[in-house]
Design a protein around this nucleic acid. Structure first.
Lengths: 231, 231
DNA sequence: CGTTAGGTTGAAAAGCATCAACCCGTGTGG
DNA sequence: CCACACGGGTTGATGCTTTTCAACCTAACG
């Protein structure tokens, strides 16, 4: 049982390469947790006592604005880590986390993580590298929000998630459409319309299956200026 | 001379509290550099050989998209650091940097920074904390881009930069309006119009001077839903 | 005193949200 | 087994928001 979870731990980029002794030490305080879809993992502004490694499923990080709007900040999946951002600083969470699907997590006390980082130089530097790459991903997101239109963001998202299956290039949406929309900073209705518009640009929609028929055309949508009419 | 620059170094949150010995070590390899407004500091995708501490002036971090659009990712000012994000990982810069005003920087070889971080545990942990807070700021930015309209982002920006001067609450824009616009993810024309619209919501514009006449009204703009008509 | 960069203004169009209706597959209780 | 409700998704009509393009203004400067 414990072996099973520790495999999840070391499969996570953040903890892979950790000395067996350290792994064992973490596993002594690690607790497996399950959440149903929609269940709250932790709240914005709550104390960051625990960090999590995702063993399976999807977790959404979000913020709620004063007027009740919700902003989806990031989505995380298997072997990614959640809640470290504030846990490492012994602060309150700067976002809320919610299960976007059934998911299993490994909860780790932040105190133990900090202690380990203080002792294990190698681990500390991995934490830093990990944080830096998270930062870079946020740069990507800001760039796309500031320079791309909704249709371009959708096209880019589809291309990122397109996989070749039996000779066809198919996009399996990693989570429900309403979450995809929130992730891209648009409303579900707009996503629906945008997908319909992309049928003229290399996309095929056959009852809930999305297929990239012409990759070049789709990439063209991303490249082209909004000014030029791809209408 | 060297003393002068080292004062700038230790005034930076990232390096304050560094052992005098380490400061001296860094100052041996540090080089002061000057840039005129608009000059390039480093290019996106160039090797991150140097990191910078800002001694004076403003630096903008930006990205250029394939189709030639530019996204302003962040603005940095005195005693903030620039270029560490990639320098610490020995990678290429994930954004370009340009002087937004005349500015003086202190350039530090990334190799030396990495060596110092490897030796000085305290410094390494400060680097991590610094990166985590940068990450949190990016969360803020994404949140505001995804949930607030242009007028709300402008109002929030004005309130953040409002200072009491001689009994009045005045906003001195930290940099030119076109940069403010880019920073908020809108076009200069839109910023101009939004400022005009905010005259009905607690803002006064007297020939290039911006005054917050009614703070509550402005905060109301941020709180209110787009649905409700504050027209 | 003309030039220029930064900013403003206007009219028109594009982009996206909103609200409401509708569709459809799934599950549930009578 | 069927009617029904429900969640997720789509579609249409409409309106607000923001961009675009162009003209114009104005303070700074050679």
């Amino acid at each position: 049982m414990t072996i099973h979870f520790s495999e999840g731990l070391i499969a996570s980029p953040m903890f892979s390469g950790l000395a067996p002794k350290s792994v064992e030490r973490l596993m002594r305080v690690a607790r497996p947790v399950r959440f149903r879809r929609g269940e709250n993992i932790f709240l914005h502004q709550s104390r960051a006592d625990c960090c999590y490694v995702i063993l399976s499923g999807w977790v959404k990080l979000y913020r709620v604005t004063p007027n009740g709007n919700e902003a989806l900040v990031r989505m995380h999946s298997q072997f990614e880590t959640v809640g470290f951002c504030d846990g490492l600083r012994d602060q309150v969470h700067s976002y809320g986390a919610e299960a976007a699907s059934i998911c299993r997590l490994l909860s780790l006390p932040t105190a133990e993580i900090r202690a380990l980082a203080a002792e294990d130089q190698e681990f500390a530097s991995r934490l830093l590298a990990h944080t830096l790459s998270a930062l870079e991903q946020m740069f990507d997101q800001v760039e796309s929000l500031k320079t791309q239109t909704a249709i371009q963001r959708v096209a880019a998202f589809l291309l990122r998630h397109a996989r070749r299956v039996e000779g066809r290039t198919v996009v399996e949406l990693p989570f429900e459409k309403s979450l995809v929309a929130a992730h891209l900073g648009i409303k579900p209705e707009s996503l629906s319309r945008v997908l319909a518009r992309l049928k003229a640009h290399g996309l095929a929609l056959n009852q809930s299956e999305i297929e990239v028929v012409n990759r070049d055309l789709l990439e063209g949508v991303i490249r082209s200026d909004p000014a030029d009419a791809w209408a």
